[in-house]
Amino acid sequence: MDITINGQLHQLDIEPDTPLLWVLRDELGLTGTKYGCGLAQCGACTVLVDGQPTRSCVTPVDAVAGSQIMTIEAVTQDPVGQKVVEAWVSQQVAQCGYCQSGQVMAATGLLKQTPKPSDEDIAAAMVNLCRCGTYNAIAAAVRHAAQA
């Protein structure tokens, strides 16, 4: 099976229903994308599939063959992603940091589709869980990135 991650084509010999998350982490060594729940509850595993924030823990790898997949490892190569990362740094969002890969990808997906989001847009898009409670900093960083 062929899949394209961060612009690079990978040939995989793997059960087609393996979740994309575990292909990224264990087969390709891209461990920036995190496992949190395995049920699409928390969003720590969020990647972009053709620009759409997608929870890779419940996405079978064969469902995304032929799609463009972007992970946190390539986020700064994307101009919107770069802005988001700079906002995450300037707003000092992260605490433990474990959910932040998924948060940054969700924000990047939002701003790619909606460059000037309203507070309601932000609330609707930024639904990933953060046990450290960085939610206010996350919202501030998304607003900051949208103005950058």
């Binding site: 920036g32 994308t33 995190k34 946190i72 990362v85 740094v89 940091g97």
Partner: peptide, 18 residues
Amino acid sequence: ARIDIRDKSTGKATYAID
């Protein structure tokens, strides 16, 4: 500023699970 902030914003921070 936190010294770990950029790594934690770009997926480079390494936890036990990684």
